[in-house]
Simulated scan of single mutants.
Amino acid sequence: MSDAQERAWTELAPRFVIPVQRDAAATSILPGSHVDPAAVWGRLAPLVVEIGSGQGHAIVHAAASAPRRDFLAIEVFKAGLARTMLDAEKAGATNLRLVEANAPEVLQHLLPTASADELWVFFPDPWHKKKHTKRRLVTPGFAAHAASALRDGGVLRLATDWEDYALQMRDVLDGAAEFERAFEGEWAERFDGRVLTAFERKGARAGRDIRDLAYRRKARA
């Protein structure tokens, strides 16, 4: 990491990063762990969670633009979290917190049931080689974890520039009993809260279409 990113971990992590108990792996979450959002953010407010926040461009912009909402960035790469903290400090985004962990474990173990108003999955690793597609994030198992973390009526928003991954996402979520489409036609309209990032620019330059999806969490029985 750069000197500035190292400084972020020394000076800013105590303010922004949620400490978690680990299981075996460095980015795992110990089963049975949990956080109390009211205690973490010091208030009760709608919670937006971004999975794979990267450099934090989307979530820092969103947090700075919506101070009445709370935001959580989930990322495994320390340098990306450091950049997020630096930008959040500059933007005055005091409603943003970060966790360095595997996203499915955060949804499964750390977040209380029905605690999130929105989940964002923007440009996840496409694992585009056929032999690697099994590593993709959006699977039926992920859909179940997302459904658990979302409140009734909460929204799961996704975007990708890989057509076959977009089709896989749509198939998985169309088949998830806990979700219903929050769009009409083949694809959702671009989400206004999603700022243009380096990943999206790269995909556009390569001539790939950007696909958005949005699914609403059905009411629990």
Rank of each mutant, 00 (worst) to 15 (best):
V76N: 07
D125Y: 03
P46V: 06
A91P: 08
L12W: 03
P31A: 14
T27H: 14
T94S: 07
S65L: 09
W120D: 08
P67H: 10
A25G: 07
G52P: 02
V20A: 05
F122E: 02
A24W: 15
L81V: 00
V17M: 15
A114M: 05
I29V: 04
K90T: 13
E100F: 04
G92A: 13
V60S: 03
E89D: 08
A26L: 12
R15H: 11
F77I: 03
L44K: 13
A58F: 10
S65D: 09
T84N: 08
N95D: 06
G32H: 07
H57L: 14
P19D: 12
E89G: 09
Q55C: 06
E105Y: 02
R69T: 04
V48M: 04
V20G: 03
K78I: 03
L47F: 11
D36A: 14
V99H: 02
K78T: 03
A26I: 14
P112E: 05
A13F: 02
S115T: 04
A25N: 11
A73D: 04
T94G: 06
A13D: 05
A64G: 08
A79Y: 12
L107M: 15
G92Q: 14
L98S: 06
G32R: 14
F16E: 10
G42P: 12
A66M: 06
G92R: 13
A91C: 07
L96F: 05
V106M: 01
V76G: 10
T113K: 13
R97F: 07
R15Q: 12
R43W: 09
W41Q: 05
D125L: 01
L110F: 00
T113H: 07
W120I: 09
M85N: 04
P37Q: 03
A39I: 12
S53I: 05
L30W: 11
A45H: 02
R43I: 01
P124L: 14
S33M: 07
